[in-house]
């Protein structure tokens, strides 16, 4: 900090500063972009942040091979193109990719199952960083394990790159349904919940008491239409990530704007009807029975 300080020493990277930043993205749409031009389209449409990556999940799925952190040059070019926050992905457990992303000044690191995992037992120690992290989860136990490692935002995983909302719905219902059930548990039952969820007891007790996760819960993986975004929000997500759904559709700019509107006005069916009109074809999408088990990204993470 260059400013002079007569009051107190500023503290950087505290949990309040990190979780607080996640609060600021609520009600918003975070869009995957692969070029500076796409980043500008996303910002013009009202995105609250962009996720800079080399290939959207649909292309990672098509190409196969090992998916890694993006080239710093590409991330820099996107940072230079927009004023909204820029996120980027590191492989699960690849703390050096995360160190590089922090050094580049990205605003949020996504420790993401969409990339090929670098560690099959350990996630990144996210407390060791100033930059905040978002992690995916398919159920409440996984969400609380990520929070116990320092994640400041949880996103339901869904199944990235499919344009199919079914897995996102499954994961949101699992996480939020278990929070509702846990809220009814007495003290003795909470011990049992901690065991079953394989999550730290203090975090389980806190969720039981407050009826909510310690950090914002966003939705990712399969959102392709304004109605999909509003469905995630009505189910209880607090914001949405849209990956392949925008730039794999026929007409990205109006679709991006419509998804932003739908995320804000998620309970107003008249506005949803209005913004859903005339957007052209969404991404084609993939049925879950067309993807074999080894190609399911949601099962990555421990």
């Amino acid at each position: 900090m260059s400013q002079k300080d007569e009051n107190s020493q500023p503290e950087l990277g505290t949990m309040r500063v990190k979780r607080g930043f996640a609060e600021m993205m609520k009600g918003g749409v975070i869009m995957d972009v692969v070029t500076a031009e796409q980043a500008r389209i996303a910002e013009d449409a009202g995105a609250v942040a962009v996720m800079a990556l080399e290939r959207v999940p649909a292309d990672i799925r098509r190409d196969g091979g090992v998916a890694r952190m993006s080239d710093p040059e590409m991330i820099e070019s996107i940072k230079a193109a927009v004023r909204i926050p820029v996120m980027a992905k590191a492989r699960i457990g690849h703390f050096v990719e995360a160190q590089i992303l922090e050094a580049l000044g990205v605003d949020f690191v996504d420790e993401s199952e969409v990339l090929t995992p670098a560690d099959e037992a350990h996630h990144i120690d996210k407390f060791a960083f100033t930059v905040p992290f978002v992690c995916g989860a398919t159920n409440l136990g996984e969400a609380l394990r990520r929070i116990s490692e320092g994640a400041c935002m949880i996103r339901s995983k869904g199944e990235a790159g499919t344009g199919n909302i079914v897995e996102a719905v499954r994961h949101l219902r699992s996480i939020l349904g278990d929070i509702r059930r846990l809220s009814q548990a007495d003290a003795a039952e909470q011990f049992d919940w901690a065991k079953k969820l394989q999550a730290p007891l203090p975090l389980v007790q806190e969720v039981a008491r407050t009826g909510r996760l310690q950090v914002p819960l966003f939705c990712a993986g399969g959102i392709a239409t304004p109605a999909d975004a509003a469905l995630a929000m009505q189910l209880g997500a607090e914001a949405v990530f849209v990956g392949s759904g925008i730039f794999k559709s026929d007409n990205p700019a109006p679709r991006a704007k419509a998804i932003v509107e739908a995320t804000t006005h998620f309970r107003d069916a008249h506005i949803l009807a209005k913004v859903s009109r005339g957007l052209g074809a969404p991404m084609t999408g993939i049925g879950m029975d067309e993807i074999n088990e080894s190609q399911r990204y949601a099962s990555r993470g421990w």
């Binding site: 900090m1 009051n7 500023p10 503290e11 950087l12 990277g13 500063v17």
Partner: peptide, 25 residues
């Protein structure tokens, strides 16, 4: 004040007394 890695918290002086300020981007 910079990007998210520069976000900070600090005590500030206000009309209602000392207050803890959280500054995010």
């Amino acid at each position: 004040f910079g990007r998210q890695i520069d976000s900070f918290e600090a005590d500030i002086d206000t009309v209602i007394g000392d207050f803890h300020g959280i500054f995010i981007r």
